[in-house]
């Protein structure tokens, strides 16, 4: 009671004080107030200016510049040669390379995103259940977040290695035939996906665990009293309540999968026979290996359009079904 009284009385006090200072300084309170508001706006401008300037130079301007570049052909120095209209886009979809990249990217998403989310969700549910040694498990499950894409790729390169690789050795021990992990066009994307899932799990786990820790303990207590088993509790309680986080995690990991580059560049270079040539790798090759900046920009814009579309679809469709507290 006392507390609420205090907090409601504060603005009043401040109003009195403000009026006092206002009369003291100029005698016209409305003028002082407008000066104060102007100063506040100026301060706000100064406060958001650095971030806004950086966004302008390194995000908004490039977006416009990409549109400009995509409508032109460029020389290898990156200078615009001549206006070609939509030719770059038309060529993209006419040549086999780009549709293939799109397909590979979609396959890559299907292979990595659901599996990563399922693993991360399971790990987070385990850690939420407060078993003994939970802290240790939490650290272990979070470990891959500390692994960069290049470090992770080389770690897995050794595992995938055809002769000294441990994975094939283990397969042989189980009586299975060894797999040409990275050199067979049928398995290369799967291998890269396996490594990517392993890498993604750390971040997604941390994200989902954070979401689960926001669920009040009382809910679990009452579920227990109602005789709900751990699996039922997971489906009926944990999953609906963690769905906002899960929703965010799925958006970020789909967008992240669209941006995959490092593991492809190190493990397969897009091969064998373009079976792992994902969008960003193709963009990189076109723009920075073959120096076709116009074509590269056209691809960047297609990538942007897809990511934008997915974000919008996810927000519109999924948001309605997501359970917010």
């Amino acid at each position: 009671m006392e507390k609420t009284e205090k907090s409601t009385s504060l603005p009043l006090k401040s109003r009195i004080r403000m009026d006092q200072t206002a009369t003291r300084t100029s005698g016209d309170p409305s003028r002082t107030a407008s000066i104060g508001r102007f100063r506040e706006a100026a301060l706000a401008a100064a406060f958001i200016a650095p971030a806004l300037l950086l966004f302008g130079i390194f995000l908004f301007y490039p977006l416009i510049q990409s549109v400009y570049l995509s409508l032109h052909s460029t020389n290898p120095r990156g200078q615009v040669a001549n206006f070609v209209g939509l030719t770059n886009f038309r060529n993209l979809f006419k040549s086999p390379g780009f549709p293939n990249s799109l397909m590979v990217t979609f396959q890559f998403i299907l292979l990595t995103v659901p599996a990563s989310l399922a693993f991360a969700l399971t790990f987070a549910a385990i850690c939420r259940s407060r078993i003994r040694g939970m802290k240790l498990f939490r650290f272990i499950f979070a470990l891959p977040i500390a692994v960069s894409v290049s470090t992770g790729s080389i770690m897995w390169m050794v595992l995938f290695h055809p002769t000294v690789g441990t994975l094939n050795y283990l397969l042989e021990q189980l009586g299975l035939t060894p797999v040409q992990w990275l050199t067979d066009p049928h398995t290369a994307l799967l291998s890269v996906s396996l490594m990517t899932i392993w890498m993604n799990v750390g971040f997604l786990f941390i994200l989902l665990l954070g979401g689960m820790q926001g669920i009040p303990d009382e809910l679990y207590e009452s579920a227990k009293i109602d005789g709900s088993g751990p699996i039922r509790t997971f489906w009926r309680l944990t999953l609906p309540l963690v769905s906002p986080t899960l929703f965010f995690a799925s958006v970020t990991s789909i967008i992240g999968a669209f941006q995959a580059f490092g593991q492809i560049n190190i493990l397969t270079k897009g091969g064998p026979v373009n079976s792992t040539n994902v969008l960003v790798f193709k963009l990189y090759e076109d723009a920075f290996v073959n120096f076709r900046f116009g074509v590269g920009s056209a691809q960047a814009l297609v990538l942007f359009a897809i990511v934008l579309l997915i974000t919008i679809i996810q927000f519109v469709v999924v948001e309605r079904k997501v359970h917010y507290q």
Partner: peptide, 13 residues
Amino acid sequence: IPWEVAIIPNYLT
């Protein structure tokens, strides 16, 4: 805006 979309102009800048 994925960073990759801006990467060509940023490189040129």
